[in-house]
Design a protein around this nucleic acid. Structure first.
Length: 579
RNA sequence: GAUUUGGUAGCUCAGCAGGUAGAGCACAUCCCUUUUAAGGAUGGGGUCCUGGGUUCGAAUCCCAGCCAGAUCACCA
């Protein structure tokens, strides 16, 4: 078994060993289980299932490839299903059609014995309908394109009921490839996500805005209130941060003279993880010169409504218990109106101490680091946000919470800012951008004060950004949309992990296994090395630290269990290994 | 970070008044030979997450740790 030499037989499951033996057998038959040359496909499973019922003269000479998902072997005739990117179709294998001559090896041995669920094959044949009424490909020849060495979870389904679904979230996220193979609806979610991004991109391109790229590694992070990831550049010998937002760079581009710029940006925030937060996430940010936040609200409505149409062909989307309708126009509340609506309290004229009283009355936890704005935001977050299910704009935020937004044109103490809330969560944030450099400097300084009060997320002062807007930035409307959050709503996903291919996970513990030589150097006979590893003593250090009596017992136990023909070691021998 | 639930075969799960580890699918061998989550028979497969403790005896009870999920805190 040359293929088994490199990997200890002790580490593989029985099924994996059987598959490696099949691989050996294929090589012996002169079949390359991993051929180099391309395989020409001329049809997909989806095409066949869609078109064959209306015209069964179609698909009489096809070439198709996919992964074997089920097999039902009956003897000289068998059924299987292959799955390609578009779906699944049944295959019919008949011995004497696969093997037209005397030699029946391709059917009796290769197909029946050496193929497994999970293998990828290419086939040629024609489409027909079985007696059971199922559209099926009659296979005339098949070719192994890739032998699979790990058994897949086998998920079965009948009348919409799924049996033995592959559901363990840890395995699904860590081995997303397996999740996608056996849970086709997972692939569908990610196709929808891409449609969402494409829809937004098309919309913005049609308006003539420029898609740009700005730095991810930034010497000063800014544009949002968040804790950053910190890294170090060797040549510059300086600290760099992974961006938490790209706002300040995009506004520099507006200063530079573009009328509209946008970027789909991966941002990074060094904060907690839960079903709404991943350390890296995607935002789209858009800045349009000579516009204000009123204009931007209309643009968001139009853009998101269209995204819903592009993804689903309608504006109504089922999300959990709720039917959400993105049809324009969306409801609009000022923040004060929303709080009054949901609590019955008018806080618009309250000062900080009155707000503290109100928060206590509403049983909302606040602390001393919070300023007036943060208290209002907390009241809103507690009492209003979760109740806003249909898409709703909340406008006119307290100035303290929005250091990059322009003062409200008519309402003192507020800024021209809005968020869109949907299904109880923020999906976008936008404002008339502050372009008064004197005011901007004051706002940054106020942030520094908040920082001194203990607010860990207070923004830092970005001198170059101030210098840029001192040259003059036209009045500008800016927008940020959390793509992951929006994708969750649009795909009815409960967790951000379901709309990210590879959500962040704690690293898997890799078991460090010492080489056989290392054990041999300790005087362990070759026969016993795999057993010692199997027993959990994976390094020479671990072995040296072992209790010789326990080790002796373990080894004898395994010897019995594995029916080893080698004589058991004596306790003295074991002691000698360990010492 | 806090609370809580879980971790048993490749997958989905049972087992837990402590007493030799179970099922279905998957896998192997044989029979059948146009089936539909599933034809029949037989069989192989487990460091019951890890480490301690209690006990004559621990998958089961206790403690600690690791990983994951949920809720809360923070945040988008």
């Amino acid at each position: 078994m040359p293929l088994l030499k490199n990997q200890s037989i002790m580490e593989l499951s029985e099924q994996e060993i059987i598959r490696r033996h099949s691989l050996e057998e294929l090589y012996k038959l002169g079949i390359d289980p991993y051929p180099s040359e391309l395989f020409e496909k001329n049809v997909t499973t989806k095409d066949i299932l869609a078109n064959f019922p209306t015209d069964n003269s179609l698909y009489q000479d096809i070439s198709i490839a996919g992964r074997i998902m089920t097999r039902r072997i009956m003897g000289n005739a068998s059924f299987a299903e292959i799955q390609d990117a578009s779906g699944r179709v049944q295959l019919y294998f008949k011995r004497d059609d696969i093997c037209t001559g005397e030699d029946k090896t391709m059917y009796n041995v290769v197909f029946k014995k050496l193929l497994d669920i999970g293998d990828i094959i290419g086939i040629k044949g024609y489409v027909f309908t079985t007696q059971m009424g199922e559209i099926t490909i009659h296979v005339k020849e098949f070719k192994i394109l890739c032998k699979s060495l790990k058994p897949l979870p086998v998920v079965k389904e009948k009348d919409g009921v799924t049996y033995d679904a592959f559901t363990d979230p840890e395995q699904r996220y860590r081995q997303r490839y397996v999740d996608m193979i056996v849970n086709p609806q997972v692939r569908e979610v990610f196709i929808k996500r891409t449609k969402l991004v494409n829809s937004i991109r098309t919309f913005l391109n049609e308006k003539g805005y420029l898609e740009v790229e700005t730095p991810i590694l930034q010497p000063i992070y800014g544009g949002a209130a968040a804790r950053p990831f910190k890294t170090h550049h060797n040549t510059l010998d300086s600290t760099l941060y992974l961006r938490i937002a790209n706002e300040l760079y995009l506004k520099r581009l507006i200063v530079g003279g573009y009328d509209g710029v946008y970027e789909f940006s991966k941002d990074f925030r060094n904060e907690g993880m839960d079903r709404f937060h991943n350390p890296e996430f995607t935002q789209i940010e858009l800045y349009v010169a000579y516009k204000d936040y009123e204009w931007m609200m209309n643009a968001v409505e139009e853009m998101v409504e269209r995204a819903a149409m592009d993804m689903h062909g309608k504006t109504e989307i089922q999300v959990g218990e709720n039917m959400i309708n993105f049809c324009r126009p969306w409801k609009r509340y000022t923040m004060y109106e929303a709080i009054q609506h949901f609590t019955g309290i008018d806080i618009s004229a309250m000062d900080e101490s009155q707000l503290r009283e109100t928060a206590c009355k509403l049983e909302i936890k606040i602390d001393d680091t919070m300023g007036r704005g943060k208290i209002i935001d907390t009241i809103f977050g507690e009492k209003c946000e979760p109740k806003l299910i249909q898409p709703t704009f909340i406008t006119d935020y307290p100035i303290e919470m929005s250091p990059l937004a322009k003062k409200h044109r008519s309402k003192p103490g507020l800024v021209e800012r809005f968020e869109a809330i949907c299904n109880g969560k923020e999906i976008c944030n936008a404002f008339s951008e502050l372009n008064d450099p004197i005011d901007q400097r004051k706002r940054f300084e106020a942030q520094l004060e908040l920082g001194k009060r203990g607010d860990e997320e207070a923004m830092v002062l970005d001198e170059d950004f101030l210098r840029a807007i001192e040259y003059g930035m036209p009045p500008t409307a800016g927008l940020g949309i959390g793509i992951d959050r929006l994708a969750m709503v649009m795909t009815n996903s409960q967790s951000i992990q379901d709309v990210l291919f590879f959500p962040q996970m704690r690293p898997e513990k890799k078991v460090v296994v010492a080489s056989d030589d290392e054990f041999a150097a300790m005087g362990i006979p070759a026969d016993w090395i795999p057993v010692i590893i199997k027993a959990g003593y994976t390094t020479s250090a671990a072995l040296k630290a072992a209790n010789p009596n326990k080790l002796f017992n373990d080894l004898c136990g395994f010897r019995k269990k594995l029916k080893m023909e080698v004589a058991a070691p004596t306790i003295d021998e074991v002691k000698k290994w360990v010492s």
